[in-house]
Design a protein around this nucleic acid. Structure first.
Lengths: 153, 153
DNA sequence: CCTGAAAACGATTAGAA
DNA sequence: TTCTAATCGTTTTCAGG
């Protein structure tokens, strides 16, 4: 169902999502149509959930990033923080975590001032306390994934 | 030099990196060639640093993710942890941070056992202590960026 | 599930405003 | 920087193994 060829396709398209089918077909040694149907299948099954351009945060106006851990102020209230925060575009990721806090957010903002405002918005929107860790420098992120053992349906 | 059209292109291609030039041209209301030269310029300037397929971690064999904060055991030693960890494919991101620790890593692994091994590898490779926060659930990540004010050259 | 070929479509280039 | 138009390459579809 799903073998080293799919693995090779995933690896190639992880590195360059705009690769043409003919480029992929060269890379994996199969005909263009074979690659096309495999790619379509990977998309349908949700193995590939989308394609993103990676933008330079500096040039795009959000040079400052931070991790924000949040914990509910009132443990009795319904814990739907992810929903309540979804409208805040500055939040790039939201994970629930094991540890002191309940959630870990990753955010990008234009300035320290914008971070201050964002933290306030988060507190108000989700009724939580926050613990912010500012990122000083990003050495790498979004590294192309080298799938381990792509599983079938 | 760089206006709302570039902004629209970035927004569109952030959501679907495989969009064709004609799709983009429809989206922004410019001819295909105009979009093409703008896109090329955005790539050349590094505003767009690459294109990635987003894969489903579950289906790709790395269902477990975690944040790992690391701090040097010997503050006197040269602090080149990012280099010393770069070969570990499980590490998806590496940031230096302000706070208790020196660096924040984000990692993806197949299993708790693999996480155990990875943490050991990190300690050995970088001579650091670690503090691991396991991710229980990911509500969202890799959200398409809505650039704030794409800056020119 | 694969290949290969024809037709449709998209990308690229050149020339002009 | 933009457009149009011709050329070239890619994607899609389908017949066949």
């Amino acid at each position: 169902m799903d073998d080293s060829v799919d693995h090779a396709i995933l690896s190639a398209i992880s590195r360059d999502a705009r690769a043409t089918l003919s480029q992929l077909s060269e890379a994996v040694g199969l005909s263009v149509s074979a690659v096309q149907s495999r790619l379509k299948r990977l998309e349908t099954r949700g193995v590939i959930s989308g394609y993103r351009a990676v933008l330079d945060p500096e040039q795009v106006g959000t040079p400052l990033s931070a991790f924000i851990e949040i914990a509910p102020l009132d443990p009795a209230q319904p814990d739907n923080a992810p929903e309540r925060l979804e409208h805040l575009d500055a939040i790039e990721a939201c994970h629930s975590i094991a540890g002191d806090a309940a959630y870990m957010l990753f955010v990008r903002v234009p300035s320290p001032r914008a971070l201050e405002d964002l933290v306030r918005d988060i507190r108000l929107a989700a009724n939580v306390s926050t613990r912010t860790t500012v990122v000083l420098q990003t050495y790498y992120e979004n590294r192309p994934i080298i799938p381990v053992g792509a599983a079938g349906a």
